[in-house]
Each structure stands twice: as structure tokens, then as C-alpha cells.
């Protein structure tokens, strides 16, 4: 029972970052109706930039966070410009192909610019773990959960409480209707893309501080986690992505506790496969 609760708590803390990745995916997919496979790799660029800075300037946590987010934003601008805006007239699937070309580029870029495959990422390790009864809340997990929750609150405030957010949601709902109402859909799409990249960069900070290291494989990893969270949540629903991310996190940690580490990835990929296999006729199945 304690094991179950501990795994549940760990899962929620981990899942909160998956929710962030899922939100980033959903923002782009919802507004542009296109899939950004390079979402993970753009975050990868940010994390590597942050890692380089931390090596050159140890202990500078705030600049590292800033550089990580800036790196993800910069890579996001690149993807938006060449894989989305330049291909706006083409079928959605063409953007998807273009993003995997970018994926190859970004992954190669970080490998080239780094002295080793595995790069360290700083973590505020001086924070103590908190014990609540028999449940242990590790500091990196607490940081993931609280950070992700704060970012989500800010994002939802932006999307549901501001004029800008209303416009984004209007375009996601129906870009034709929004166009008729005088909204510049292309501009809104680019803006949503930047917001998503920034959210992705912040998610990258939280995840990397927990892992304390990063490899080029992180790009694929983040893309898969974000995509799974989005699809579990019904593809297109923002609250759904949050729930999907949490569910994925809990499933992973429960599997880890009860069956061991080697099953964890297997189960999370199987989950993604099942989601696709069991809902073949949903709107995201035929929409692209």
C-alpha cells in the first residue's frame, strides 16, 4: 500500500512535466492542426545550451534557466519559420515531414557542439527531501511538480483570462470563423508556437534538473512523452493534455515499482500504441 502511494505521488510529480510537454504539443496541434515532431528536439537545444552555460559558469542557476528557455525559443522560431510558415499552403502532412528533417538537424547540431554525448545539467541539490508520514517527497520531484503546476496555472491564466488567449482558443476552435472575425490566423499560429516553445523550454529545465544529465536521445523521448500525453487526453483538449500527462506519469512509476525499470519504457510505448490502435476513427486519426 505504501509502495502504491509512493509510486502514485512520484507519478504525479513526474507526470506534471509530461503534462507540460503535452500542453506544448496541444497548443501547436490545436491552433495549426499540424504536428511538430521537432518539439522534443527544440527543447533538447535549450537544455544543451543551458548545460554549456552551467559548465562555463557553475552555480548560476537563473541564467542557466534563462538560456535553456531562450535556446528552446530560438529553435522553435526556426521550426516555425521553415516547417510551418513556409509550408502553410501545403498539406499538413508536409509540415510533419519537414519537422522530422529539422529533428535530424537539431540532434546532429547538439551532438556536434558538445564535448561528450552525455552532458551534465545543474540541479538545486541542496534542497532537502520532505517526508510526509511514510511517503518521501524528493526535492527534484517536488521541484518538477511545483514548477509544472505554476507554469500550468500561468498558461491557463494566459489562455482563459486574456484577450490573447481567447484569440488563440478561437483559432483552435475554428480557424475559418476566426478569419471571418478579422483574426490574423498566421500571426496567432506563430504566437502559439512561441508560447509552446517557451513552455517546452521550462519543462526541459524541470526534467533536466531531475535527470541531472542529458543525451541527444532526449529529443525523441520528449516528443514521445508529449505526444502520448496529448493523445491520451483526446488530442486538442488542453485540460485533457494535463490529465493525459499525469496518467502517463502514474502508469510509468507504478510499472517501475511493481515490475522494474526495464518494463517502464515498454509500458509507456505500449500505452501510446494502444491509444492509437483503440481509437482509429477519432478526428485526429483522419484529420491529417
Amino acid at each position: 500500500m505504501v509502495d502504491f502511494l509512493q509510486a502514485l505521488v512520484d507519478g504525479v510529480m513526474l507526470g506534471a512535466t509530461y503534462s507540460l510537454l503535452g500542453l506544448g504539443f496541444t497548443l501547436i496541434f490545436g491552433v495549426l492542426r499540424r504536428l511538430n515532431l521537432a518539439f522534443g528536439p527544440t527543447i533538447l537545444v535549450g537544455i544543451y545550451a543551458g548545460s554549456h552555460l552551467s559548465l562555463a559558469w557553475p552555480g548560476a542557476l537563473v541564467p542557466v534557466v534563462a538560456v535553456t528557455v531562450a535556446g528552446a525559443l530560438l529553435a522553435g522560431v526556426y521550426v516555425e519559420r521553415f516547417s510551418f510558415r513556409a509550408l502553410a499552403r501545403q498539406a499538413p502532412v508536409v509540415s510533419m515531414i519537414s519537422t522530422f528533417a529539422v529533428w535530424m538537424q537539431l540532434q546532429e547540431l547538439v551532438s556536434l557542439l558538445s564535448p561528450s554525448r552525455t552532458m551534465p545539467y545543474p540541479s538545486p541539490v541542496w534542497l532537502p527531501a520532505v517526508a510526509v508520514g511514510p511517503i518521501l517527497l524528493r526535492s527534484d520531484g517536488l521541484l518538477m511538480w511545483s514548477g509544472a503546476t505554476l507554469i500550468m496555472l500561468a498558461l491557463f491564466a494566459l489562455l482563459y483570462r486574456t484577450r490573447f488567449g481567447t484569440t488563440i482558443r478561437a483559432v483552435a476552435d475554428s480557424s475559418e470563423a476566426a478569419t471571418l472575425m478579422g483574426v490574423n490566423v498566421a500571426m496567432v499560429g506563430a504566437a502559439a508556437f512561441l508560447v509552446a516553445s517557451a513552455v517546452g523550454g521550462l519543462a526541459g529545465v524541470l526534467i533536466a534538473q531531475s535527470h541531472q544529465q542529458v543525451t541527444p536521445y532526449f529529443g525523441l523521448w520528449a516528443t514521445v512523452k508529449g505526444m502520448t500525453a496529448m493523445l491520451l487526453g483526446g488530442a486538442g483538449s488542453l485540460p485533457g493534455a494535463v490529465v493525459g500527462g499525469l496518467a502517463l506519469g502514474v502508469v510509468e512509476t507504478q510499472t517501475l515499482w511493481h515490475f522494474g525499470g526495464q518494463w517502464r519504457d515498454l509500458v509507456s510505448y505500449a500505452l501510446l500504441f494502444l491509444v492509437v490502435a483503440l481509437s482509429p476513427r477519432t478526428r485526429w486519426g483522419s484529420g491529417l
Partner: peptide, 17 residues
């Protein structure tokens, strides 16, 4: 399971596979 899905769904499912 994968004959029916297309587009994004097929891409995601094949990646998972």
C-alpha cells in the same frame, strides 16, 4: 490494429511500435 489509423495517428502508432 494499424490498418485503420492514418495521418498523425499512424505516425504516432508506428513510432511507438
Amino acid at each position: 490494429p494499424m490498418a485503420a489509423p492514418r495521418g498523425l495517428a499512424f505516425a504516432a502508432g508506428s513510432l511507438a511500435f
